Simulated assay, not measured.
Amino acid sequence: MQNPSKTSQLGRPRTPRLSRKAIGRAALEMFEEEESLSIPRLAERLGVRQSSFYKHVTGRQEIIELARGALVERAPKPELTSGSLDDVIRQTFDALRTAYSLAPALLPLLLTQPVSHPAALEAYDRFAEAFELAGTPRHLVLPVLETLDSAAIGASLDAITMESAWSIKEEDHGTFPHLTAAQRAVAEHPVDRFSFLADVLSAGLRAAIRDA
């Protein structure tokens, strides 16, 4: 005669078929591969019915936040050394841009809701601590983080969109002489726009913090 408990164990998977972490990871993979989020397609990826999601999440917004958490877990952990303010600004910007570049299609949706995932909050808490240790007044910590976050998201989206933000036909060069000259100049003297952005952010934020 079979042991009832053994039969029960054999009839159930040892690990839950669906979990919040599994939903977040699958949603992130969908953003990476399909550049969009479809609840029916996500259910198909996970091999469950769509109604099963609502035992774990309240809806689409929470799934997006779980994808944010999965993105934080996927991204390399930033090395925030106790250094100068300039170092912390650059390290934070680079860490954010590296993370966001993993799933650019997710970024517009992240902008529509506040950060609430514990893994993401922990990462931002580390950034906040690094800025405090570098001498940033506490009332400027969030504005600094928001500025760097917005710049990193913009840079990540910009990296996948286009080579140049301006398209001027050759016959129109005389109509737009200054913009055309600027295009030629940057072609002759290339500038790494992300390093340039980091320089501008660093100089601006250092000045704002110094004068606060």
Rank of each mutant, 00 (worst) to 15 (best):
F196I: 02
G69F: 09
A120D: 07
I168M: 08
Y54H: 06
A212K: 01
A203L: 11
L179H: 03
F93K: 04
R138L: 12
E129T: 05
L111A: 10
R206P: 04
I64R: 06
V144I: 14
E32C: 03
E33L: 07
V88E: 06
S36T: 13
E146V: 05
L179G: 04
T161Q: 11
V57C: 12
S202I: 08
L10T: 01
I63K: 02
K6C: 04
D94F: 00
S38K: 05
A207E: 15
P143H: 03
F127N: 00
P108T: 11
P4Y: 13
E163H: 02
E129C: 01
K55N: 14
D125W: 01
P16V: 06
Q2M: 10
I64L: 14
V200L: 12
T7S: 15
A159L: 06
S202F: 00
T58V: 14
F93H: 08
A43Q: 14
A43P: 08
A70T: 03
L106T: 10
A128E: 04
E44G: 07
S51T: 15
V186Y: 08
L66Q: 15
T147Y: 05
P177A: 09
R60I: 11
D87K: 01
L37D: 11
L179A: 14
L148V: 02
R49S: 07
K55L: 15
L96H: 07
F127P: 01
K21A: 14
E132G: 08
T58W: 08
K6P: 05
D158M: 07
I89Q: 04
P78K: 02
I168A: 10
K6S: 15
P16R: 10
G24E: 05
S116R: 11
L66N: 09
S84Y: 06
V115D: 13
P104E: 04
V200W: 00
R20K: 13
R17I: 13
T7Q: 15
S167R: 06
R60K: 14
L142M: 12
P13I: 12
E188A: 11
L37K: 13
R25F: 02
H56I: 00
L10R: 13
S156W: 00
A212D: 09
V186G: 00
V115Y: 02
P114L: 07
A119S: 11
E132Y: 03
E62I: 03
P40A: 01
A105K: 04
S8Q: 13
R60D: 11
L111F: 08
I168H: 06
A27R: 05
Y100S: 01
H139K: 04
P114R: 10
R25D: 12
S116V: 14
P190M: 09
E29L: 12
P16F: 02
G135W: 07
L85S: 06
A155C: 05
E32D: 10
S5E: 15
D211M: 11
V88I: 15
A165Q: 09
K6G: 06
H139V: 03
E29H: 08
I209K: 01
I153L: 09
A128V: 05
L42H: 11
P108A: 09
E62V: 00
F176W: 10
L140S: 03
S36C: 10
V72Y: 00
L37C: 06
A70M: 10
R68D: 12
